[in-house]
Amino acid sequence: MKAKETKTQEIQSVPSKKGEIHPMENLLRMDRMPHIWCPSCGIGLAVTAFASALEKANIDPNKISIVSGIGCTGRVAGYVKLDSFHTTHGRPIAFGTGIRVANPKIKVVVFSGDGDLIAIGGNHFIHAARRNIDMLVVCVNNFIYAMTGGQVAPTTPLAAYATTSPYGCVEPPFNIPYIADSSGAVYVARWTTLHIRRLINSLAEALQKKGFSVVEVISPCGMYYSRINKLGDGLDMMKFYHDNVEIRHGEDTKNLDIGFQTKIICGKFVDRERPSYMERYNQWLSDVKGGSRDEG
C-alpha cells in the first residue's frame, strides 16, 4: 500500500555516504527506524545486545524466529530482521512453543516485557519452563506498564508509585529469576542495560543452551517509572545501576528480590542440564516407533 508519507520514510531517504551502513543493518529493520522508544529507555540497548549476541553465538539468522507480546518491549520483534511475530498480550511463549514443536529446526526467542511475560503471560512462562521448551526468553523489566502510561506491574517494587498505585505499590513484586529457577529453567541470568558486555555474553551463552533459558534485563524507564518516582532521567538510572548493582554469580535465586531503589543483584544464577521437551518427545517417539524425527 502507499501509506501516507511518514517521518520514517523521510529519514530513510537521507542519502548515506557511499558504503556507509549501520553495523547491524543485516539484523535490524532499518526501514522501520526511528523506533518508538522514548529517550532514556533501555529497550534499544537490550536489542543491540541481542543482535550482538546473535553474531557472537553464530546463529543462522534464517533459522531463528523472534516472538513478542504487547507493550514497549513487545515492539522488539518488529525491529529485528528475522522471521518475527508481534502477537497477543502475554502469549508469545505459547505462540513460540507451537513454532518450536512444529519445526524443531527453528530456534525460538521470545522478547517481551515484565508485564507481558509475568502478569498476563505468567502461566505460559512457568509451563514452558516446566516443559523445558527450547527457547530463549529475554524479559526486559522496567518495573512498570509503560506502553499504557505507567501502571503498576507485578514487578513494581513495594511503595513505588505508578498511575494505578497513587499512594505507593502495596503488592510485593515477583522475583523473576526465582520463578524461572523454581519452574525448571536451565539458564537464568539478570543484567541491567548498563552491563552491556556481560549481557551480550549471557545472551550468547543462553542462545546456545538447549532448553528454557531466561535472561532478565533491568531497564530504565525515564518517561514513566523514573518520572513518577522522581528518580531523574536515563543517565541518573544508569548511575544508580552503577552504584547499586552487585554481581553475584551463582547466588541463590530466592535472594534476588528487588526493593524500591535498593541494591540489585545481577549475574548468572542457574546453568544446568535437564532433558528438553524435544529430547523427551523424541525419546517417546523412538520408543513407540523405533526411530526419531528431525533433530532440533
Partner: peptide, 21 residues
Amino acid sequence: TFIQMEDEVSVLAAVLGASWT
C-alpha cells in the same frame, strides 16, 4: 506432532505458531 498446552488460550496461540512453520 502435538502438544497439550496449559489452557485453551495458549492452545490456539501454539496452533497459529505451528501453522506458520
